[in-house]
Design a protein around this nucleic acid. Sequence first.
DNA 1: TTGACATGCGAACGATCGGTCTCTATAATA
DNA 2: TATTATAGAGACCGATCGTTCGCATGTCAA
Lengths: 197, 197
Amino acid sequence: MAKDTKERILRTALEMFSQNGYAGTNIRELAEALNMGKSSLYRHFESKEAIWNTLLDRMIAYYGDRFGSADHLPPVPDSLEGLVEMTMRMVDFTVHDEKIIMTRKVLAIEQFRDDRARDLASKHFLTGLTQMFTPVFQGMMENDLLRRDDPKILAFAYTAPISSLIHFCDREPDKTEDALRKIETFSRHFIAIYGVK
Amino acid sequence: MAKDTKERILRTALEMFSQNGYAGTNIRELAEALNMGKSSLYRHFESKEAIWNTLLDRMIAYYGDRFGSADHLPPVPDSLEGLVEMTMRMVDFTVHDEKIIMTRKVLAIEQFRDDRARDLASKHFLTGLTQMFTPVFQGMMENDLLRRDDPKILAFAYTAPISSLIHFCDREPDKTEDALRKIETFSRHFIAIYGVK
DNA sequence: TTGACATGCGAACGATCGGTCTCTATAATA
DNA sequence: TATTATAGAGACCGATCGTTCGCATGTCAA
């Protein structure tokens, strides 16, 4: 019961932080959204900042679990079409999962104010996807699916445009389907250029 | 004199907004940074929100002047090396110009809260550079400098990674020189792939 | 010289902020 | 049943928020 309330608080706080930022969110509205008195909030967190820090802890831990460990690396596709499919599966998930969307949004808002948010933002928006795809491309090159090249540069050239469009979906969710099509078009263009026929 | 004060206010407000956001900035600190009483601020702007709206007006107008009109399109380079040089000249400017840096930062912070900021953010972070480079690439294809392809996709594939690294410089300015080198490496890799020998 | 206007200041306003206090309801333990 | 711990409620606190007020100063046209 207690644990449940704490989770509800974190969830709702993330919603509000991702819309209006930390400074733009006040605990009265947060308490109202949770249908509880302000003071009840303080049974579970000692301060507004503690909520924020706990959220950041969670985001960092989640990212580490999901993208940091070697055993979560995506498998090397066995065809060019497999790369497109794997990409679209990942992207489709990441642009529709509410929690991840809110995480990216709050990182975009707080990245210049909070050092830990800054670090995590760099991973989410730039280095994360690249590091994930580098071994994938390396494997595909070894299997003669992609032309031999620097896999790091290739991974960057592949993931950065996709990352831009994911971020675009956060900003304009109505155009998500449009962006997904653009990502697929880009992915197919990519394999047409770099793929070995 | 009056005009001067107004400009000083806008300048300093942009500095603070780009660091802590609109909600995270208070009028007292702003007045202190300007060495004037809070009430004096209200001689020039009727409210905090008016400062924000004026700033947004300026940003939108500046962007329209600089990137919106057809006569500000960059010239089509007459060599592949010319493309790299033009790119590096533009990027070097945009990652060192304080006002543009602050504009991008404040847009990143406020993009989910303010509709006009959202629109301008999409231009800054995604569509702007792509639209700018599309005719450039089209011209280079017609001049047989680049292999024939869809110039829009190519422009997107070229500018999105660069845009990501520009954004990275805003977040971690200490690593700007590093990022610039990466952009040049990427640009050269790009012409190695798409350039006509 | 006077009157009007623009610009600046410190003090203070009401509203709202994050946070605390005291009290009650509940549910589990002994 | 008595006791204790937990979670909730509303009133309330001091601090800070954006904003306004009254007044002083400087400038310039009449």
